[in-house]
Every structure is written in structure tokens, then in C-alpha cells.
Design a protein around this nucleic acid. Structure first.
Lengths: 343, 343
DNA sequence: AGGAACATAGGAAACGTTTCCTATTTTGGA
DNA sequence: TCCAAAATAGGAAACGTTTCCTATGTTCCT
């Protein structure tokens, strides 16, 4: 059914290796013009496409890398995936996209897939699940080139990593909010059951205390970084804190921020008059909400380029150099969801 | 570095074929208990994982299917992809996800990839791009099992298809809007430059005229089905129609609806008091907008199951039976964005 | 005119599996 | 005790490429 190299060679009246050499125009391309054209014509007529599987077996590489993200439902990741797809495309490398949904079983499965030598390397975006941190070293040990995206934490990862330093963005956000008169804060993040926030909660508390905000005026709300869970959790906080209700909210991603804004709406709070909201991620949607979302953005494209470079180096390099760490800073994009503190 | 079948066999002191038979527990599994255990132990110790590429070459199949969607930035598709991933997982088949961004070049590339025999079959979601319709038959002709999702149109597709019949949802939406007193409508859709709306515009006009709405009170707005494009286009309409401004909008997907809601906000129109909005797709986000979005939902899971079945049948069946068509109806989910017509 | 250097092409092994077929040993019934 | 049948295992080819190495003509210089 499908044309093979042999078929092309036969039709062109040459040996398979000759055809192969020509089709991949290899080694100075010694073939005579007439032979070359015969082969090219035959390949075209037969609609020949080489079997990637056979190539992979022979060459020991796939020209494919994997990108594993926590959750495709968060529009941040498709944005990142697009950049990365473009970056690898330039190197003639396919990118296969997987998402774990932050579920342990799916994560296991994806790690297996990656290990099945389907890919020459893999990029893992460590979301708020701490689960796969454990496996990263294992994968690298098993010989798979790996690069990870992660939040900046105290303990460096055992693999090359592109880490996001939230300090600058946080500082800008807190400056803005405090200057606008806000004194009572809420912090919405994923914590518990295998989830961490990369010390961002601690960082937040510390920066606020430097501004003279006592820690009892900083409410930590834990949710699952999905929109529904954020709404529920924040609505509960609103109902619990009638007297000293926070006037400013920082959510650890834009989706949670949207959920919280919905909760505010349901509680009769208006944004930004009664409540100021800051998100993280700068998802495209944020600018088009009825009240456009102020958010901490990342230099996604630069981060992706760096990750791509790191992975390519790992793939091409023979030895196992020590893991490196590249740090990128966040910055605030001020939109409509932040205002002056009420009264 | 990586353990191969030979290595496992050597360590267990058996021939490779014996090891293969045991590891795949094939043909009544004749191997003696002791041999079996030795092989299993060796495989475990060496962390043996068979090379998928080699298997693919030998077996002529990949245990992998492709899913091609137009745009991952629209949260509708991740939802669909998740269902499909689960459905194929049950059959031990990997799903690789590709998106074309509705760009012609990317589409070409993806079609190539699929044809490179990386997959045993492919599911294409035909968005509003008419571009790949042309290629579907070609792919099927080339021997690739293909199933397509599409809107119900007059001309059936040359491959098995799962089509969405919008009539019922439209009828429900129009009933609701007309009963609420709306008389002037807008219809937001992707048209032009290779894009079609599957006759949904015509359908809309027809249903409205049955309700006694003259066609001059139906405004068609063309945009690119992305949030920003929808905002721009609808804002323009608002500004152009000060006198006979529409009081109800139907957008051909939820993302456009959100963009239009943003435009309404910018123009000082409030929803649903000044403008009622209905979307299509029922993306999860819709329920969590400050004004929850009324939308036409699809039985996504059932559609996915059907598509999965169709593809599996194509893959397993020898001959080339005629293309079938499975139709699914939409239904309205009423939320907050629809109200009574103003004054 | 004779050989070296070049241009052009093919033979055959290899990548890591699976599977068809054959070979050896064991079992069991008469 | 003998032979057929069952149980158990291995040999070798095959999947579709790529690549190393060798072989045949050509060209060109002396």
C-alpha cells in the first residue's frame, strides 16, 4: 500500500542506498544529475514518505521531544506550547504535547511514555504538583535529556531548569496595592496534598510585613488552581471575614483570579471598588474580561527559547554536565482590576 | 545504556524470541514457570522497556492515533481532548494532540506528520477553516483511517464524520430570545478567507424569519473566532448601529461571546440589561464569568465516544466501507447573560 | 599509453523487535 | 519398553531505513 524506499529505488532503477543518499541529499551528494532526478521523480510519483519508525530504529533518535504541562485547560500552557513548538520546528524537531491534569496516575503514564524512547528529550513544566519532582532525577539518570520549568525555590532541581523568580513581580504588585491604600490582603494558592506554591506564600507574607502589614491581615486561601475551586474557596473566605474582609487579592494564577472575581460578584462585591485583584500568568483572556485583570506576566518567549537551548545541548552533548539553572523575573501588567482601597 | 531485549534474554539465559514471547505473554504462554520468572526478573532488573520504534517497524502499527484540533487556546478543545485521551487509553492507544491554529502552513505540516505513518489513524476537528476539508479525502485515499468532527452541512464529508446539528440549540436560543421580547439581533461568526460557518448564518436567518424578524434586523458580524477579533468586530457594530442597535447577540463560540461582552462593557452597555448574549461550546469558564454565559452545549463525551468507535472500526476493518455520518444535537444552557429586551 | 585520482553506484550489515518454523526434551499411554 | 504427542526452547528471517565499504567506469596528468 504505502511506498517504501525499495519501491522508489526499484522504480528509479537504482539501489536502495543510492535512493536514500539522494533523498536525504547526503555526503556532498555525489549522485549524477540524471540519477538524482530519476529518484526524485519516482519518490514523488509514489508519494514516498520515509517511515519515521524505521529511521528511529536505525538512527537511534526520533527528532521528537516531549513537552509535559500540568493542565491544558489553563490557557497559559497553550501559549507556552505554541512558542516551544515554533522553537523546535526551526530545528526540524517535532514537539509532542502531554498534560497530566495534575493527576498522579496520568503523570506516571506520561513518564512511562517518555521513557519508552519515543522522544529524544523532554521538557517538564512543574506546576503546583510536587509529585514529579521526585522523578526528574530518575529520568535524567535513565539517560533522558530533561529540562524543567519551575518556580524559584530553595532547593535546586536535579536537572537543567528554567525557573521563575516571582520576587520582582510580587514587589511591584504589593507596592501598587499598598500605595493604593490596601491594608488587608488575601493570597489564593494551591497547597496541601502533594501541592506546593514554591514558597510564594512565604514570600508574599515577608514582602507585606516589610510594608508594615501584620501577618494576621494576610489571609491564605488554599484551592486547586482551577476556576471553580478558586470561586468556592474565596467565597468561603468572603463569608467568613465580614468584619475584616481583605480588600486586595493576589491569586497564584489568572484562572483562580477569575474564579475569585466570580465569587466577589456573587457576594455583591464590585471590582475594583470593593476588591482589587491581581493574578499570575497573563493569560490572553485576562485583558478581555469585563474588568480587565491586573496580572504578573512572565517573559514566556525568552523562557521557552532558553529551555529549548538547554534541551538541545543536553541532547547533543555526550557527557553529563552539572544541572544548570536559568532565572527569569516576572513583571506586573496593570489593568483594571486594581483600584484604591475602599473608603 | 538502555537495555534491549537481547540483554534481557542474555541475562535470563534464554533466546530473544523466548523472552519476547514471555514478556508479551503470547500464544497460551507455553514457557515454563521457572523460565518465565527468570525472564521477568531480568527485565525488571534491567528496567527493560521495549523500543516502540522497533515494534512499530516490525508490527506495522503504532498503537497511537492523532487528534488534530484547530486551536488549543479555545478551552473547548482541551475538554474534548481529555475525553478522547481517556477513551483511547482504555484501548491501550496513545493519543497525540496537534493544533493547527487555523493556519494553512501549520495545517500542511500536521497533515504531513500524520501521513508519515506515525499514527494508525487520525481524528480531525474541522473548525471554521474549510482548508482541510479538501485534504480529508486524500488522507483517506492514502490509506489512513480518518474520522472528522464537523458542523452539519449540506455536503457530507468523504470520511466518517461526527457532525453537530445546531438546529435544536438555535431553535431553543431563538425561542428564548424572542419570547423575552428581542427583535433586533446580531450574529457573530467567522466568515471569509477560507473560513465558513457551516451554513449556521443561513440557519439563523431562516429561524428568525420564521419568528417574524425581518432580515434587515439581523446583523452579521464577521471575525476570527478569537476573543480580540470578536471584541473589535462587535465594538464596531455597536458604534455603527446607534439607532437600531441589536439587543441580542449570538456568537458562534464562547470565546467570541466573551470578546463581545468586553466590547459591550467598553461601550457602556450592561449585560443582560442592554444586551443579551448567547455563545456556543459551553466552555467551563463560561459559568464563572461575572455574568455567566448562556450557551449552546454539545454532548461532547458522547460525540467523542462515537468518534473513537468509528476510528477503531476503520483501523481494524480491512476493506473501505462507505463513509458514515453520526449526528449529534446541541442544547441550550441558560445562564445569566440572557435577559428581557430593554424598554 | 599507463596509472592515479575521481565520480558514481551497489552489497550487505545493522538498528530492536516479532514470529514462523524447526529442534530437542519430556510425558504418558499401550 | 517404545512411540506418539505434548511441552519447551531456539534459529533465522523480516519490518524499512541508513551507512560503511567495495566495485566499476571515467577523467586527466605525465
Amino acid at each position: 500500500m504505502k511506498a517504501r524506499l525499495i519501491d522508489v529505488a526499484a522504480r528509479a532503477g537504482v539501489a536502495p542506498n543510492t535512493a536514500s543518499t539522494i533523498l536525504n541529499n547526503r555526503s556532498g551528494s555525489w549522485a549524477s544529475k540524471v540519477t538524482r532526478e530519476r529518484v526524485l521523480k519516482a519518490a514523488d510519483e509514489l508519494q514516498y514518505r520515509p517511515s519515521k519508525a524505521a529511521q528511529a530504529v536505525r538512527l537511534g533518535r526520533f527528532n521528537t521531544v516531549g513537552l509535559v504541562v500540568p493542565d491544558l485547560h489553563n490557557p497559559y500552557y497553550p501559549v507556552l506550547a505554541d512558542y516551544m513548538k515554533t522553537a523546535f520546528q526551526k530545528r526540524k524537531i517535532d514537539l509532542v504535547l502531554e498534560h497530566t491534569g495534575n493527576e498522579f496516575e496520568t503523570e506516571q503514564l506520561v513518564f512511562q511514555t517518555m521513557l519508552d524512547r519515543q522522544v529524544d528529550g523532554a521538557v517538564f513544566y512543574l506546576g503546583d504538583s510536587e509529585l514529579h519532582r521526585e522523578y526528574l532525577g530518575e529520568l535524567a539518570q535513565a539517560g533522558l535529556p530533561v529540562v524543567a520549568f519551575a518556580a524559584l525555590t530553595d532547593e535546586p532541581l536535579p536537572v537543567d531548569s528554567v525557573v521563575i523568580d516571582f520576587r520582582e513581580g510580587f514587589r511591584q504588585a504589593i507596592d501598587l496595592l499598598v500605595n493604593n491604600g490596601h491594608r488587608r490582603f488575601a493570597f489564593l494558592s494551591a497547597l496541601g496534598k502533594g501541592q506546593g506554591d514554591g514558597n510564594r506564600g512565604e514570600l508574599f507574607k515577608k514582602l507585606l510585613s516589610e510594608k508594615g502589614i501584620p501577618s494576621e491581615d494576610v489571609n491564605f486561601v488554599s484551592c486547586e488552581h482551577q476556576i471553580g475551586s478558586a470561586r468556592d474557596a474565596f467565597l468561603e473566605l468572603i463569608n467568613e471575614t465580614e468584619d475584616r474582609r481583605p480588600t486586595a487579592l493576589i491569586a497564584m494564577n489568572d484562572l483562580s483570579a477569575i474564579g475569585a472575581m466570580r465569587a466577589a460578584k456573587e457576594a455583591g462585591l464590585s471590582i475594583p471598588d470593593d476588591l482589587s485583584v491581581v493574578g499570575v500568568d497573563d493569560i490572553p483572556l485576562g485583558a478581555y474580561l469585563p474588568v480587565a485583570l491586573t496580572t504578573m506576566a512572565q517573559p514566556i518567549e525568552a523562557m521557552v527559547l532558553e529551555a529549548t537551548d538547554l534541551l538541545m545541548k543536553r541532547i547533543l552533548k555526550k557527557g553529563k554536565p552539572a544541572a544548570t539553572q536559568s532565572v527569569f523575573s516576572t513583571f506586573l501588567k496593570v489593568r483594571e482590576s486594581v483600584g484604591m482601597a475602599p473608603e
